[in-house]
Design a protein around this nucleic acid. Structure first.
Length: 746
RNA sequence: GGGCCCGUCGCCUAGCCAGGAUAGGGCGCCGGCCUUCUAAGCCGGAGGCCCGGGGUUCGAAUCCCCGCGGGCCCGCCA
């Protein structure tokens, strides 16, 4: 386990650099580099009895050309140096041993604890953490889901990762600007707008008991599905006609007649006769297949048989799809009967509907003010629903940027004009094409960006003069830098957009925005997969973020009312309880969506939420720390933390030797700064969650086995009080970063 | 056809970038623990040799190569 940096780790690195350069004669600079690159690093021994920290010397010995037989002797000299130098004191070393090529350090926790606790209580740690960003402006764009249906757990993952990352940046002292890019142009919104205009014509109003995003989600899916259903119905009818025709052909085929017995021919004719009053063609098709089954081999090379078989197959396949689509429609019709009736009666000819939608899109792309306004208006209602959902999860934005806005659109045209004159751009059949392959020949930046793939080409302006998504995205990216004066822009966007993000970055660079291109980061995250449900907005199939929170509320309530409360403790009032349960639900939802490394697919089973209660675990130990201090101090700990910290600084516990669990807690607390910085540098906000969980577990162990109030020995009581205050201080920061509500009691 | 990402106990996941000592957690499973700061907790147990195969190395879950499996991308879509 590597634990670069950190309180003691950085001190030990310095100590070992000195020791090695003195004893092995290796250049100091080389050793420092080795620590920086991780060739040498501070880690934890497999067992506590071996030491608290260790450094593997294999690499150093090897580079210095020391033979394995000479290791112990040299190690002896290294240890001698460490023991006699000031590092022994500085790094809280109580003893050093050599074993198996490792330098193992035992730490004087009595002194180390004092240092760690003081650094936390005085705000030294906080201050250092906040100095990382130095007030630099950064933009985090996240969520940016298409406003055509509610946020589902997939978009929710984006929101939580983006928001947590923004919170980390903010803790680190960056000036963070959070933005949401609303894609209110294009095909998906056109479908929704088409459905909405039908409802308006028919006077169907959004019901008041629906959140707008949920309502429009149904409208959007119904529009898609009804058009699909109509299309399928047409195909189904013609497939049916073709099937009957090919059955007649078969029956009049002499070759077939010579193979089939008269009785079989008869029953086939019987089936054919029923087609006029058919109720269930699927059944009839199956009947024909059944009847012919026994003659499959005899007929296998017969053309009319082969044709019939193919027709039957394609008919059944279509019928299956049709039935499935109908089921999906029925599902939605039950939820919104008026909407269903209106849409279903208005859409008769699917071609006509699609043509009208295309017309809407065209007008939108041509920037027809009335159509743009309509697109914008509908999108805005959905976004209002998003805002509500996100607010519940403690997620908010500084700005919503609309794709249809004047600034973006004119920026897009401007980008086109600028690109037009570039040697790597050319007109092809009227459209403007950016040839990044050509650009890459002269630009190492572009080459490296796509390596080892070919950069490829892409269209940036249609032959009719309209712009595309990527064009507007280029304009938007420039806008983000200009508008905010940001040094760095992070786009939290799904991995499927990786190519488009590279195209934007490349074009930015080629347009002369070199610094911006270099400071534009695609924060990649992967999709969410559910066990037992394939999400599809177009089909109205999704597990929404609202449902996730609601389901967690149910889970958490069940635990609260059934298994909790066994051991006294003052029960919360009904109102307080539901507030707390709501908070727990939010924490659990956020934690779940953050729990996996962003670039890995997150899979979970909505039916087994009770198995993923990371939020509860963290908040529970948070509450425990508070409850100790509440009893001890007689005040509300979170409200009086400043005073409590100051008070704890005055405590003295000289000579107290921390227990193993206490040492573990100290070690973890000392690691806070490192975790926060590394989660930012490596774009892994999930590390903060993991760290918070580890801290919670240790706090629980401590809580179980160490009394604070009941402790007789005054130095132990003082130490523990200070430790609890320090732990609560760090925990409060973590709860902030994770965006959890600051729960006081459970 | 080309490119990117992922593959660790029954399930989920950390470690991989910067190779080192018995691969950490969580869920689930088995067995214990509520007179003392709330048992949404704690203690103990069973369970993995890190997708497969080669290679580099004194040493590989980690680096390289070849496979296999899964996801994604290569539109005058967004």
């Amino acid at each position: 386990m590597s634990i670069q940096q950190g309180f003691i780790a950085s001190c030990l690195s310095r100590a070992v650099v000195e020791a090695l350069s003195k004893t092995l004669g290796v250049e100091r600079k080389l050793l420092e580099e080795a620590f920086e690159t991780g060739r040498l690093k501070v880690s934890k021994p497999p067992s506590k009895s071996m030491g608290d920290y260790s450094i593997a010397l294999h690499y150093a010995f090897k580079t210095a050309g020391v033979k394995q037989g000479d290791w112990p002797a040299l190690a002896g000299r290294i240890i001698e140096y460490l023991n006699s130098s000031s590092f022994r004191d500085e790094c809280f070393i109580s003893s050093v041993e050599f074993a198996n090529g490792y330098l193992n350090f035992h730490i004087d926790f009595t002194r180390f604890s004092r240092r760690v606790i003081e650094a936390i209580l005085t705000g030294e740690v906080e201050g250092r953490v906040r100095s990382v960003g130095g007030g630099r402006m950064v933009v985090v764009e996240h969520t940016s889901a298409n406003p055509v249906h509610p946020l589902h757990v997939g978009s929710g993952r984006n929101s939580v990762i983006g928001d947590t990352f923004a919170r980390i940046l903010s803790k680190l002292g960056f000036n963070v600007n959070r933005r949401y890019y609303v894609n209110d142009m294009g095909r998906q919104v056109a479908f929704l707008v088409y459905g909405v205009s039908i409802l308006r014509e028919k006077g169907v109003k959004p019901p008041s008991d629906f959140k707008p995003d949920h309502w429009y989600g149904i409208v959007y899916a119904l529009t898609n599905l009804v058009i699909e259903e109509r299309g399928l119905l047409r195909k189904l009818k013609s497939a049916e006609a073709e099937f009957w025709a090919s059955l007649s052909t078969l029956l009049s085929d002499q070759a077939v007649r010579s193979i089939l017995p008269e009785s079989v021919v008869h029953s086939l004719q019987g089936v054919l006769g029923k087609k006029a009053f058919n109720k269930d063609t699927v059944k009839l098709v199956r009947e024909v297949e059944d009847v012919l089954k026994g003659f499959e081999q005899a007929l296998s090379s017969n053309e009319s048989y082969k044709s019939l078989k193919a027709k039957a197959e394609s008919y059944l396949k279509l019928a299956g799809e049709y039935a499935k689509t109908q089921r999906l429609i029925r599902r939605l019709a039950i939820q919104a009967p008026e909407a269903y009736t209106a849409i279903s009666s208005s859409i008769v000819d699917p071609e006509k509907a699609l043509a009208e939608i295309r017309g809407l899109m065209k007008k939108c792309e041509e920037e027809d003010p009335a159509v743009l306004a309509l697109f914008h208006e509908v999108s805005k209602s959905v976004i209002d629903g998003f805002r509500e959902t996100l607010a519940k999860l403690n997620i908010s934005f500084d700005e919503f940027d609309w794709e249809s806005s004047r600034e973006i659109l004119s920026g897009a045209h401007e980008a086109v004009r600028e690109l037009e004159s570039k040697p790597f751009a050319r007109r092809e059949e009227g459209a403007l094409l950016v040839d990044l392959d050509a650009a890459a020949e002269h630009s190492a930046f572009v080459r490296d960006l796509f390596h080892p793939d070919k950069p490829g080409k892409f269209i940036i302006e249609r032959s009719d003069g309209t712009t595309l998504y990527v064009t507007r995205d280029i304009a938007y990216t420039i806008y983000k830098f200009r508008k905010t004066g940001a040094e760095v822009v992070y786009n939290v966007i799904a991995s499927e957009q990786a190519r488009e993000q590279k195209q934007v970055k490349a074009v930015l660079y080629l347009l002369g925005y070199e610094k911006e291109a270099e400071n534009l980061f695609h924060f990649v995250y992967e999709l969410v997969r559910l066990k037992g449900l394939r999400m599809s907005g177009r089909r109205g199939l999704y597990y929404t973020l609202d449902e996730l929170v609601k389901d967690y509320y149910t889970v958490v309530s069940k635990i609260y009312y059934e298994t909790g409360r066994v051991k006294g403790g003052e029960a919360l009032s009904g109102e307080e309880a539901s507030r707390v349960l709501e908070d727990l639900a939010v924490a659990n939802a956020r934690a779940l969506l953050l729990s996996v490394e962003p670039f890995k697919v997150l899979t979970f089973d909505p039916g087994r939420l009770e198995e993923a209660l990371y939020g509860s675990t963290i908040l529970y130990s948070y509450v425990r720390l508070q409850s100790i201090l509440r009893k001890l101090k007689g005040v509300e700990p979170l409200e009086n933390l400043r005073e409590i910290r100051a008070g704890a600084l005055g405590l003295s516990w000289d000579g107290y030797e921390p227990s193993e669990v206490e040492e573990e807690l100290i070690d973890l607390l000392a690691d806070y700064e490192r975790v926060l910085v590394s989660s930012y540098r490596d774009l892994k906000p999930n590390r903060v969650l993991e760290y918070a969980l580890a801290l919670s577990n240790t706090v629980n162990k401590f809580y179980e086995s160490h009394r604070v109030m009941g402790e007789q020995r005054s130095e132990a009581r003082a130490f523990r009080e200070a430790l609890v205050v320090a732990a609560l201080t760090v925990m409060r920061e973590l709860v902030d970063v994770l965006g959890f509500p600051h729960v006081r009691k459970i």
